[in-house]
Amino acid sequence: MANSALLDRARDLWVTLAGAATTFPASDVRVTVAVGSRLCPPGWAGIVVLGDAGIATAPDAATARFLREALAGRPARSAVHAERWSGAPGVADVLGPAALAYLDEKEFKPATAVADVEWLRPGHPDIGELLAGVSEEEAAESGIDDVTSSVFVIREGGRLVAAAGYRRWPSSVAHLSVLTSSHCRGRGLAGAVASAAVAEAQRNELLPQWRARPEPSQRLARRLGFCQLGTQVSIRVAADHA
Rank of each mutant, 00 (worst) to 15 (best):
D28K: 10
D8R: 13
G43P: 00
T22C: 12
D146C: 10
E141Y: 05
A140V: 14
D240V: 08
F108T: 13
A238K: 04
R159N: 12
V48R: 00
D145N: 13
R187K: 08
A196W: 06
F108L: 15
P125W: 05
A10D: 03
V15S: 02
W210C: 06
S135C: 09
G158E: 10
F108Q: 10
G73T: 02
A139S: 15
R68E: 14
R68H: 06
R219A: 15
L71P: 03
W44R: 02
S171Q: 15
A2F: 03
L50P: 01
P125N: 07
A111V: 10
V153Q: 05
R30N: 13
Y102C: 09
S27A: 15
H175L: 12
T148C: 07
R203F: 11
E107W: 06
A98K: 04
E69Q: 11
P208H: 02
P42I: 03
R121S: 14
V151Y: 01
A76F: 07
H175V: 09
E141M: 12
C184G: 10
S217H: 05
I127R: 02
V147S: 07
A139I: 12
G90W: 00
G133A: 15
L95C: 08
G188M: 09
G165S: 13
T231Q: 04
P42T: 02
A201K: 06
C40Y: 01
A101F: 00
M1C: 02
E107Y: 05
H241T: 10
A238S: 10
A199C: 15
I127L: 14
S149P: 08
G191F: 13
V178D: 08
G54L: 08
S142K: 11
Y102R: 04
S217I: 07
P170L: 15
T16E: 15
G54K: 04
G36I: 05
V49L: 07
A113F: 01
H81E: 13
A79Y: 04
S135P: 09
A115H: 00
T23G: 11
T16F: 11
A162L: 14
S172K: 13
W169G: 07
G36N: 07
H183S: 11
H81C: 14
S181Y: 08
L7K: 02
A192T: 08
D104K: 10
I47Y: 03
S27Y: 08
A162E: 14
A190Y: 02
G225K: 05
D116T: 01
A53G: 09
L67Q: 03
S177V: 06
L229E: 04
R77G: 14
W210T: 02
G96S: 09
T32Q: 03
